[in-house]
C-alpha cells in the first residue's frame, strides 16, 4: 500500500481555496488540518481522504498573512481553524462558527506560538 503519511504537497496560499474546492467536488472528506510554527512561519496542513487514499497539502504562510477559511467549503473545518487561530494565532478570516478565541478555555493567548527570543 502506498505510504500516504509522506504524501505532503506544498501549495501556495492563493491556491488553498481552489484546491479545497476541487477536493470537495471530487467527493473527498476533510481528514484533518493543523498548524506548525517553524522558522518564524506557519506551516498549515490540510489532509483530504478518499477511502484509504490521503493527500496532504502544506501551505506556508508568514505570521501576518491572512488565511481564508475553508469552513464554507468543508463545514467541519471550523473546529480545526478555531484551534489554529487560538493556539497559534494564525490569522484565519471568515470561519463559519467563529469562537473568537473561546474554543479552549485557556489563560494565555496563542500558547503554541513561541515568543521571539524567548527560546
Amino acid at each position: 500500500m502506498e505510504d500516504y503519511g509522506k504524501n505532503i504537497i506544498e501549495i501556495p496560499l492563493e491556491k488553498l481555496a481552489i484546491v479545497a474546492g476541487e477536493e470537495k467536488n471530487a467527493g473527498h472528506r476533510l481528514a484533518q488540518a493543523c498548524a506548525t510554527y517553524v522558522n518564524d512561519k506557519y506551516e498549515l496542513l490540510y489532509s483530504f481522504e478518499e477511502d484509504y487514499a490521503m493527500t496532504t497539502y502544506k501551505v506556508v504562510v508568514g505570521l501576518d498573512e491572512e488565511v481564508p477559511s475553508i469552513s464554507r467549503i468543508f463545514f467541519p473545518a471550523f473546529t480545526y481553524e478555531n484551534e489554529m487561530k487560538e493556539l497559534f494565532g494564525v490569522k484565519i478570516k471568515g470561519i463559519v462558527t467563529d469562537y473568537n478565541d473561546k474554543f479552549y478555555r485557556i489563560a494565555t493567548e496563542t500558547p503554541f506560538l513561541k515568543k521571539k527570543g524567548g527560546k
Binding site: L87, Y99, K102, F103, Y104, R105, I106, P111, F112
Partner: peptide, 11 residues
C-alpha cells in the same frame, strides 16, 4: 464548546 480540560500537551 470544549476546552475545560485543555492541557496543551502537544507543546
Amino acid at each position: 464548546s470544549i476546552g475545560f480540560i485543555h492541557r496543551g500537551l502537544e507543546s
